[in-house]
């Protein structure tokens, strides 16, 4: 195996690793938006997932418990959002930014209180050894050239995410439930006439989205990094929002977009480290560019992608229209 081949394999693996939380949150957001609710606050929900997973894992010493806690935290955030937007008829976009602020504030607050508490007790705030998740290579399969390391040497949640994608795709494509979810966002009055409770349906979709975002947060804090930092999601939630539009509300498109951003992200990180380590001259030339430009890249790419793609991409019609509709 040549060095460049190694590099490509490594980058691809990192791309999937980095894309997993975005895919997870994206699947949830897709379901939510199809049902007619756009949640700008996934960033905040993910942060709550991060902190819940981190602190609960730290206290309980079990990563799984932390993951469940993150899912629960995500669902609680979703309930608040649903209460405001679905039942309380709040404007989804502004309420979404409020949810973001809530996530940032609450996670920062919990983090500081957790630190104080652990220090008072004389414990470290780092995760107990072995409680976080590490990569789970799947026996035999991970030895396949290229495909093995890329697809079968990932974190457990990555496999779950991929399975979830298949399930959600199947549900949306091949079941009556999928029809209902689509109709909730496209013609809620048709659902209502069919006896489907629109607000309940939307709330359940949001709950699913919240669980996904919470799990995505857990992935960031107790799998990928084993650390928590304030605002550690760094805008990934917002990129997911852009990607749902970019993928035209279709699952394959969203996953493709997430993988692309994962690739840019891993490239960016590689380039940042290459500044100090690489002997490769081509890479070295790039290190003269300030690394912030690489950090900026995903966001710029998202804007450019939207600018190219969002024409002729009608989303669900009833996004940000509370049910029952009031004519204004």
């Amino acid at each position: 195996m040549t060095a460049s081949h190694n590099m490509i394999t490594f980058l691809s693996r990192q791309a999937l690793t980095a894309a997993t939380p975005m895919i997870l949150a994206g699947v949830g957001e897709l379901v939510g938006e199809l049902s007619g609710v756009i949640n700008i606050g996934i960033e905040g929900t993910m942060l709550m997932g991060c902190i819940a997973a981190y602190t609960v894992t730290g206290v309980s010493n079990h990563g799984t418990v932390g993951l469940l806690a993150a899912i629960a935290a995500g669902m609680v955030m979703a309930m608040i959002f649903a209460a405001a937007c679905v039942w309380g008829r709040a404007d989804q976009i502004v309420a979404g930014t409020a949810m973001d602020l809530l996530g940032v504030g609450l996670s920062g607050m919990v983090w500081m209180m957790y630190q104080n508490w652990r220090e008072n007790l004389g414990f470290s705030t780092a995760l107990p050894h072995g409680s976080g998740f590490s990569r789970v290579p799947i026996p035999l399969l991970h030895q396949i050239a290229f495909l093995g390391p890329v697809f079968f040497d990932q974190y457990a949640l990555c496999y779950i995410t991929l399975c979830l994608c298949v399930v959600v795709w199947w549900v949306l494509r091949h079941t009556r439930l999928g029809l209902i979810i689509g109709a909730l966002g496209d013609a809620p009055e048709a659902c209502h006439a069919a006896g489907v409770r629109v607000r309940m349906g939307r709330s359940l979709c949001l709950l699913f989205a919240g669980a996904c975002s919470g799990a995505a947060g857990a992935y960031l804090s107790i799998m990928q990094t084993h650390a928590f930092a304030t605002n550690m999601t760094g805008g990934q939630g917002f990129v997911v929002l852009a990607l749902v539009i970019f993928g035209r509300w279709k699952l394959p498109g969203i996953i493709g977009g997430c993988l692309f951003f994962g690739l840019i992200n891993s490239l960016q990180q590689t380039l940042q480290t290459a500044r100090y380590t690489s002997q490769n001259t081509a890479l070295h030339a790039l290190t003269h560019v300030p690394f912030q430009f690489f950090q900026m890249l995903p966001y710029l790419a998202a804007i450019v992608a939207l600018a190219i793609m969002s024409r002729k991409a009608p989303g669900p019609r009833y996004i940000n229209v509370p049910w029952p509709e009031v004519k204004t």
Binding site: I80, A83, A84, G88, R89, A90, D91, V94, A95, T97, A98, M99, L101, L102, V104, G105, L106, G108, M109, W111, M112, M113, N116, P322, V326, K327, T328
Partner: peptide, 30 residues
């Protein structure tokens, strides 16, 4: 040593409540 982020949480809650009041009052006025 209560984290100052408490203020952010309070702000977020105030926005949410105000939004809900606005949304409901719209419906009620109709």
């Amino acid at each position: 040593a209560l984290p100052h982020n408490m203020a952010n949480v309070i702000k977020a809650l105030i926005i949410l409540v105000m939004l809900v009041l606005a949304g409901l009052s719209l419906r009620k006025s109709r």
